[in-house]
Amino acid sequence: MPQDKKHDLYDFMQQISSEMAAEYDRIQKRATEDPGTAGDQGEENWAELLRDWLPQTYEVVTKGRIISQEGATSPQIDVLVLHETYPKKLLNKKLYLAAGVAAAFECKTTLKAAHISEAMENCAKIKNLYPARVGTPYKELHSPLVYGLLAHSHSWKGANSTPEQNIEQKLREADAAYVTHPRLQLDFLCVADLAAWSSSSMTFIGPRQVPDWSSLASAYGPTGSATTAYVGHARVKDQVDQFTPIGVLISYLSQKLAWENSSLRGLADYYRIANIAGSGSGEMRKWPSSIYSDEIRGRVEAGQLTNGKPWDEWHLAFQ
């Protein structure tokens, strides 16, 4: 049964969702005669939302490219979230140092299937501008950059359309096509009036961790596996009453940023406990233990992981 809880945060999430819907209606009235301006307005809606809900120490800018430490550059990105340490002199240069970018988002007013493939491809290319990290399961499974796709609405509006299923299928297809390592996953897909998906990973589960492995071998393979998933949160039968896709975005974005910025962890925990994201589910993709460096691989295969210990980079699972 849905949780019967009351919290002012739930009202705030509903208010933001209503405002985003109103902005979508307003933008669409002029979209056919000036699609460029419509796109710019949509990007600014998302930028303003991030400015309102992220700590003031983050700078949110629009339309820029990321430059790696070797000088390689990304395609243009709609919205970028910069670390508090970012040099003020460079804030308006539109070419942003990779080490100073915390998150980046592509924005669409009306989501189409092609946008998902494009975002997944861009995500993999841009995350490859960052050196692969070693030392803990968290570092090896994740890029320091959070990357997502945000949309006001979607194109599947017919009477018999199944937009959530269409998006999930496209996510799986694009992930298989472009994501060659878990750290290249798309972190978010949020459709403000429909649902939201957030990346998730499990470090490893195998026969050295589970005495009776035969019961799990069919799911995780004979030697075990790491897994990733896109956990979808939608308005399903057993969803909490307070669910909004924007609540999912704010809650899980705070969690993902907090792994890199410990000062944000208290707020991320607050959102999680208040449950503004509701519940979700997703289909697993299995990965061999060879995705890890040799040192980390031996330890994860041996089950040297924690479970229930907050913000531990050796945890069994990450969201």
Rank of each mutant, 00 (worst) to 15 (best):
Lys6Pro: 03
Met13Val: 04
Met13Glu: 09
Ser17Leu: 08
Ser18Glu: 15
Gln28Tyr: 10
Arg30Leu: 12
Asp34Tyr: 06
Gly36Ser: 07
Gly36Met: 05
Thr37Gln: 15
Thr37Gly: 14
Gly42Tyr: 03
Gly42Arg: 03
Ile67Gly: 02
Ala72Phe: 12
Thr73Arg: 09
Ser74Thr: 08
Thr85Ser: 15
Tyr86His: 07
Pro87Gln: 08
Lys89Leu: 13
Lys94Arg: 15
Ala102Lys: 05
Ala104Cys: 11
Ala113Ser: 13
Glu121Phe: 09
Leu129Asn: 03
Pro131Ser: 09
Tyr147Gln: 06
Leu149Val: 06
Ser155Val: 11
Thr162Ser: 11
Pro163Cys: 07
Asp175Ile: 04
His181Lys: 05
His181Trp: 00
Gln185Ser: 10
Leu186Asn: 04
Phe188Val: 03
Val191Ala: 04
Leu194Tyr: 04
Leu194Ser: 07
Ala196Asn: 04
Ser199Cys: 09
Ser200Ile: 07
Gly206Thr: 04
Pro211Gly: 07
Ala217Ser: 15
Tyr220Trp: 09
Pro222Val: 15
Pro222Thr: 15
Thr228Val: 00
Ala234Val: 10
Gln239Thr: 05
Phe243Thr: 05
Phe243Val: 02
Pro245Val: 08
Ser251Pro: 00
Leu253Val: 00
Leu253Pro: 01
Ser254Val: 04
Glu260Arg: 06
Glu260Phe: 05
Glu260Leu: 02
Asn261Ala: 13
Asn261Gln: 13
Ser263Phe: 10
Leu264Arg: 02
Asp269Leu: 03
Tyr270Phe: 13
Asn275Lys: 08
Gly278Trp: 06
Glu283Gln: 11
Glu283Asn: 08
Arg285Gln: 05
Arg285Glu: 01
Trp287Leu: 08
Ile291Gln: 01
Ser293Thr: 01
Glu295Gln: 14
Ile296Ala: 02
Arg299Phe: 03
Arg299Asp: 01
Arg299Lys: 15
Ala302Leu: 07
Asn307His: 12
Trp311Cys: 05
Glu313Leu: 04
Trp314Ile: 05
Ala317Glu: 14
Gln319Ala: 13
